[in-house]
Computed example of a mutant assay.
Amino acid sequence: MDTAHYFAPDPAAPADLREREVVLRGRARTVTTGGSVFSAGGLDKATAILLDEVPDPPTTGTLLDLGCGWGPITLALADASPGADVLAVDVSERALDLTARNAAAAGAPRVAALTPEAALERLGADGRVDAIWSNPPVRVGKQALHDLLDLWLPRLAPGALAHLVVGKNLGADSLHRWLQDERGWAVERVGSSKGFRVLAVTGS
């Protein structure tokens, strides 16, 4: 399966916008998805498992959806914590447009859909986030994934949690070991379902 278009800033394929009915942590939503954006057909299994397994995020502060796609995790964060700022980060301009569109339709004014560079600029040199929820783009390749996590996990506030969902057959257990043994993070497997692991990383 060629997934390179998911990581393209400006995908060449037609937008092919479509409305979908999804349920995010028990809440029904009508969302818009589009071509060349991850899981354009609706809510993917891994993200659904993540949303079922994670505890509620902090009610205030700054929450991060890393690799937002069309925005299911962003919408779940905004629903759970309407008093928090939610940063939806993706390299794809189409994904950011869809997330912004879906957040506006959901009445979530504190969502900001941003490129990684814009999100880092908004946070500032020393800015931290109070939670990260992510179905990270494992298929971008191991080194690129490691670089992504090396960039964002240090932005966790002390004691804050990053929840990541990764397929066992896509290297969830080796990622756990890398985070813990090579990078020194406190990592706990907090969920396992249908071939996916949910890992919790604690900020230091």
Rank of each mutant, 00 (worst) to 15 (best):
L77S: 07
A80W: 05
V165M: 00
H5K: 01
A160M: 00
T74F: 08
C68W: 05
S174T: 15
S36W: 00
Y6S: 08
A100C: 04
P58N: 02
D90R: 04
R155E: 01
V86A: 10
V166E: 08
L123D: 08
M1Q: 13
T115E: 04
R128W: 12
G107V: 06
A131W: 01
A160Y: 09
L63P: 08
D10P: 05
P116Q: 10
E19Q: 14
A106C: 10
N169P: 06
A103I: 02
L63H: 01
P136C: 09
G107T: 03
D85L: 14
A13V: 12
L145Y: 01
P58G: 05
A186D: 13
V201K: 06
W185T: 05
G61S: 12
G61K: 11
A144Q: 15
A108M: 13
P58K: 10
D2Q: 12
N102E: 11
A172Q: 08
P154E: 07
L96A: 10
A105D: 05
H176S: 00
Q143R: 15
D150S: 14
V129W: 12
E21G: 14
A186R: 15
W178Y: 14
F7T: 00
P55C: 07
E121C: 11
E19R: 14
S204A: 14
D16W: 12
L96Y: 13
G184Y: 11
G83N: 13
T33W: 03
L199G: 04
V201D: 07
P82F: 06
D130C: 05
A105S: 12
L24Q: 08
T202E: 10
Y6T: 06
A162C: 04
L151H: 14
E121A: 15
V89G: 09
S36V: 03
I132Q: 08
A95W: 03
R94Y: 11
Y6M: 04
G203P: 02
R183F: 13
V111N: 14
A100N: 08
E21W: 09
R18S: 13
I132Y: 00
L114C: 13
R29V: 01
R128K: 15
E121I: 00
A144R: 15
R139F: 00
A104C: 00
L96M: 13
E188L: 03
V86M: 08
L63N: 07
T60W: 02
A162H: 00
V190H: 08
P14C: 08
S193M: 07
V198M: 05
G61H: 10
L51R: 06
L87M: 07
L87Y: 09
R18G: 10
V138Q: 07
